[in-house]
């Protein structure tokens, strides 16, 4: 914003630098009309200075545009009012004391134009005109600050806030063993939504503070498992992810039809998938092999006619635990 004098300078942190850049960007992105005050109190040039005084007091404002026949003709401010009070001249008309031909600003201008005008003049407010020269608002330094702060707050990375909150999840909850369980129902044959559960699990892990490597391994494993439920089950199935600071246990289970020969199913390249599934880029008999490579332990249990339960676990080393506040400094 306005230049900072040497004496005001403080050592700048990375976060400061980031926010300042964003503020500067916002100064160009935001339009004057987005931050200005639209709900305007205007005064007529032939109204008295007494009217101006009443208006300032009632509206708690320190200045107002003066408008005649819909056009801006001047600006009356607290300073003008003080001048008038010293002369004990409250009966005079506003036109006697107002600033005529006030400097104005366009509603479609970027906020940075207003910043420049405030810096270049001593004025506290500028009337805002649209492309037809009609008065549409007024802008003060306070409007600018509020507008930019609101925009900053709005786009302050929501994801980072979520991540920060979740990364401390287990810290304040005392138990001998705490865990977070996520469950997702997977529909048979729903290829369009295929991977949605895995995507949510991966995101949850990242928010909890998992390293990108851990989240990626879990994501790939659970995605293959999710596709298996979509492709091979009778009625779909459930993915259940139990997250603890030191381990992630993911089960993908269904109620049929079950796998006839588990060893054969584990063999690379073996698949019972049909051509439709292969056209989707799956069904090459690599899913289970893939899962095995991504997790630390995997067990496949299946009973024909009853269902299949695929159990996967990823263990987290001490420095990579989740949900205990270590996650906030990790890169994603």
């Amino acid at each position: 914003m306005s230049p900072v004098s040497e004496s005001q300078k403080k050592p700048m942190t990375d976060q400061d630098a980031e926010n300042i850049t964003r503020t500067e960007e916002l100064a160009y992105e935001l339009k004057v009309e987005e931050v200005m005050t639209k709900d305007l109190k205007t005064l007529a040039p032939d109204a008295t200075m007494q009217d101006a005084l009443e208006a300032f007091r009632e509206e708690r404002i320190s200045g107002a545009p003066v408008v005649a026949k819909g056009k801006l003709v001047g600006l009356i401010s607290m300073e003008d009012l003080i001048r008038c009070l010293r002369l004990n001249d409250l009966a005079a008309s506003i036109s006697d004391y107002m600033t005529t031909n006030p400097q104005s600003i366009r509603s479609k201008d970027p906020v940075v134009e207003a910043l420049k005008q405030f810096a270049a003049t001593h004025y506290g407010r500028f009337p805002v005109l649209d492309e037809h020269d009609s008065l549409v608002g007024i802008i003060t330094k306070g409007d600018l600050t509020r507008g930019i702060l609101a925009a900053l707050q709005h786009d302050y990375h929501e994801e980072e806030v979520r991540r920060y909150r979740a990364s401390h999840l287990f810290e304040d909850i005392e138990s001998d063993r705490s865990s977070l369980i996520l469950r997702y129902n997977i529909k048979k044959g729903d290829f369009v939504l295929g991977g949605a559960a895995s995507s949510k699990i991966k995101r949850a892990l990242l928010r909890l503070g998992a390293t990108p490597q851990i989240a990626r391994r879990a994501g790939i494993a659970v995605y293959e498992a999710e596709m298996n439920l979509i492709i091979h089950t009778t009625n779909g199935g459930v993915i259940r992810a139990e997250i603890e600071p030191h381990q992630i246990a993911i089960n993908a289970y269904d109620d049929g039809p079950g796998i006839e020969d588990v060893d054969l199913a584990m063999r690379p390249g073996f698949s019972t998938a049909d051509d439709d599934v292969r056209e989707l880029g799956f069904g090459a008999g690599m899913g289970l092999v893939n899962i095995q490579r991504c997790v630390d332990s995997m067990r496949l249990e299946s009973i024909i006619g009853k269902g299949t339960n695929l159990k996967m676990k990823i263990f987290l080393p001490n420095q990579e635990v989740m949900g205990e506040g270590f996650g906030q400094n990790k890169e994603s």
Binding site: V192, G195, S198, S199, P212, R216, G219, Y223, L280, G281
Partner: peptide, 15 residues
């Protein structure tokens, strides 16, 4: 050459 949503899901899982 695959154009279905699974391409994007795969991309997302595998960074």
């Amino acid at each position: 050459g695959l154009c279905n949503p699974q391409v994007v899901r795969t991309a997302q899982m595998a960074d």
